[in-house]
Amino acid sequence: MLHQSLRYKSLILTDFVINTVPFSVLVSSRSQALHTAVSQLYPPQLVLAPEPEKIYDFCLTVERKWAGWGRPYHVSAGQQHFRMTDSAQVVPVFEWGFNWCIASYQHQYLAIHAAVLERHGKALIMPAPPGSGKSTLCAAMMLEGWRLLSDEMCLVDLTDGSIVPCVRPVSLKNQSLKLVQSWYPSAQIRQITTGTTKGTVGYLLPLADSWQARGQTATAAWVVFPQYNVNQTQLQLSPISKADAFMHLANNSFNYAVLAEHGFNSLGRLTQQIQAYRLEYADIKQALSELSQLC
C-alpha cells in the first residue's frame, strides 16, 4: 500500500538520488531548479534517477507549500520538518538538510567535526570550531593535491578504526569564497548564495581524484588543531599531549557522548596512532608548506 502511495507521489514530485557514500539520499522535489543545482555540485554519475535495486539511506522532500509566507519551500525528512526557505536559498538549505540527516543518524561511526585530507593512505584530521579557518585551509590543501575525505565530518569506523570518507561539495563562507578563488583562479566554486543565516555561502567542487576515491578509507596519522590568527607574526606548530588531543577530539565530536565507552575506546585507539599538534597561522602559504613538511 505504501509502495503504491509513494509511486503516486512520484508522479507529482520529481525523484532523484545522490549516490554519495557512506550515505545516499533520495530526494523528492517539484523544483527542477534544485535538480539542476545539485547536478552542478555533484558529478553526473552520482546524481541519478532512483534505481529499484538500491536502498537509500535518507529521504529528503523539498516541497513548495502554501504555508510559510515568504519562505514557501519546506525541507523535510518524511514527517520530520527541517527548515523553510525562499527559492533563492533552496540549495544551501537542502545541503544543510542532508548534513542534518547524517549528523542525526550516524552513530555506527564516531563522528568528529573536522576536515579530513589524505596523502599516501594516511589521513590528516583537522578538528576545529567555526571561525578557525578550517574550511579555507581544507579547500586550499585539496587544491594543492591532498585527497579530500570531508570538509567537516570525520567518520571513524567503530569496528576497525579506519577513517571513512564522506565526500561532499566543500562549503565556503563569506571572505573565504573570495580568498580561495583569488589564490586558485581555476577552483570551481558554484551556487553562491547571499543572505543566508550563515552569510554568503558557496560550494567548492571536490577534484576528480577525491570523488573517484570516495569509498577508499584511510588510516589516521595526524591531528592538527588549526587556528587562523591575523596577529600571528610567526607560524606556530606545537605538539600537544595525546591526552589533550583526546579531550579536544571528544569535545569536537557530534556523538562521543552518545557512544559512551564505545566512543572512548574508539577515540583512544585513534589517538594512540596519531601525532597531535596545534597550528596557529596568519599566512595560508606558510601553513600549507608547514603541513606539507610535517605529513
Binding site: 505504501l2 509502495h3 509513494l6 533520495l26 532512483p50 529499484p52 535495486e53 538500491k54 536502498i55 537509500y56 539511506d57 535518507f58 529521504c59 525528512a77 518524511g78 514527517q79 520530520q80 543518524y105
Partner: peptide
Amino acid sequence: LLLDFFIAPRKFIQSATPQQWTNFLQQARE
C-alpha cells in the same frame, strides 16, 4: 511497512524489496 515488520518480522525481511527497505528506514526513524 512498520506494522508488517512487527506482525511478522521473518516474513517481512524475506520479501522486502530495496524500495521497501528505503521507506522502512524512513518510517522507523519517524
